[in-house]
Design a protein around this nucleic acid. Structure first.
Lengths: 245, 245
DNA sequence: TTTAATTGTGTTATTATGACGCAATGTAAT
DNA sequence: ATTACATTGCGTCATAATAACACAATTAAA
């Protein structure tokens, strides 16, 4: 890394959400130098928009393109990366002292969250020794720096957006069942919803196509499959729902 | 300004909202070197949290403390400050070439918006030749850089927050009338609301105290005065309204 | 064949919303 | 003083959205 080519003191952290086994998953990276995990991050090339830099991180880490990506907050407490890249870390990465200075400066980080199709997004290692995994959001281990705060804020933003926008299109596979969609909502909101009221409400939004097809290989009664109506989805995404006033 | 004491390539822009004469106002500064206006801005001391730096800008520019302040987005297109601090500008400020380099670097800016009591916030000049004024949001002149985009984004955020939170407490004087509050909502949302339905809905939130007092010196029938019930306001602010799901 | 879990499709009561009516109040014109 | 007019205060009514709940149909497993 040539320090001159990157915006100094600025980084990007991505909270990448997936949904699998009826659980919300987050893509995390194990740090090689301590027993903590980290959000996928990156720096900002001096000649790249910050949004573009975030897209780069996502492409690199998931292997897929055209991801739903949204900036949600910027974190800039002075103490947030205090001592993070200490001498031990610099040594671990065999970073020379003069270059190390770039890492130990104060960093402000811009938070993005992404919604991806779990089955299409394959965690990509940057090197063979790296560990990158989908982790259930209920089982997130200790994270470095303020990454826990960033994650919580991302989830909270998603919770609010859920009330304003039709989420799900990006997190679910093309064909999905109503119980799956409901479970997604319940997981994000962290509360139980009435099955029948949920169906009515989601139908009233008018973005779903009910297929003439049922899910196979399931216990109990086979639920119907649905797809999103892309056109109507886009329209609602623009105008929003639950306007309030 | 000693460049070493500030976070490089990062700035803060504040959209300061006030409400007066039934109109939404924005605090703007006339640039001395071209015929455009600017949002109040500032840099980030290397040893200060970004939120603190934003508070500083607000205190300096309005003369009041304890302001309602919220970060809403970060802007980082490469071209956003292209050529802004050109040689002409550096010359105008009599900035030496080597220091000027600091100003001509690429800048990412963090946007904050603030809600203030128009009558208490007195625009503060940094020097005697500076022009700083409240400008009606319908009459905002051409702004420098991407400040128009930042302003629009701030207003849009406010519009969304209006659906989630009880806004008004910070923008209105202690005692206000129902038509004033309604006009505030109409201005932010840019649409007409039914007077009677508005009253019912705002009353159902339960954050207003109806005073035994009427506004004086008004044309036509004197409207009643209200205050916010601070405790209930704080409670609703925490839990939000219009939950949706 | 029975059991248990789950899905599909309703009903009903309550609350929220949108559209509107009309009398009371206070200023300004006659 | 009387009248006209804009505005406020307090309603109604029809409709839509929401919460709570009932019951039959389906399917794997006991």
């Amino acid at each position: 890394m040539n320090n001159e080519n990157y915006q100094p003191g600025l980084s990007i952290d991505c909270v990448i959400f997936g949904f699998h086994d009826n659980q919300l998953k987050i893509l995390l990276i194990k740090t090689p130098y301590e027993d903590k995990w980290s959000l996928p991050d990156g720096f900002i090339p001096i000649n790249e928009d910050i949004d573009t830099a975030a897209v780069t991180v996502l492409n690199e880490r998931t292997g897929i393109e055209g991801i739903f990506l949204r900036q949600f907050a910027t974190f800039g407490r002075v103490k947030r990366n205090d001592q993070h890249f200490g001498n031990a870390v610099l040594e671990h990465f065999k970073i020379p002292k003069e270059v190390g200075k770039w890492f130990t400066q104060r960093f402000v980080t811009i938070g993005y969250y992404a919604l991806v199709d779990f089955l299409k997004a394959i965690p990509q290692k940057e090197n063979s020794r790296e560990i990158i995994e989908w982790i259930d959001h209920k089982e997130v281990p200790e994270l470095i720096l303020d990454h826990r705060e960033i994650l919580d804020k991302a989830l909270n933003t998603l919770r609010i957006e859920l009330n304003l926008m039709p989420i799900g299109y990006n997190l679910l596979p093309e064909k999905f069942t109503m119980p799956e969609l409901q479970k997604l909502y319940e997981t994000i909101l962290d509360k139980k919803l009435d099955r029948r009221n949920f169906l009515r409400k989601i139908n009233n939004i008018g973005i779903l196509n009910k297929l003439d097809e049922k899910k196979s290989n399931v216990a109990h009664k086979a639920p119907n499959l649905y797809t999103f109506d892309k056109d109507k989805y886009e329209e609602v995404l623009k105008n929003g729902l639950n306007q309030g006033w």
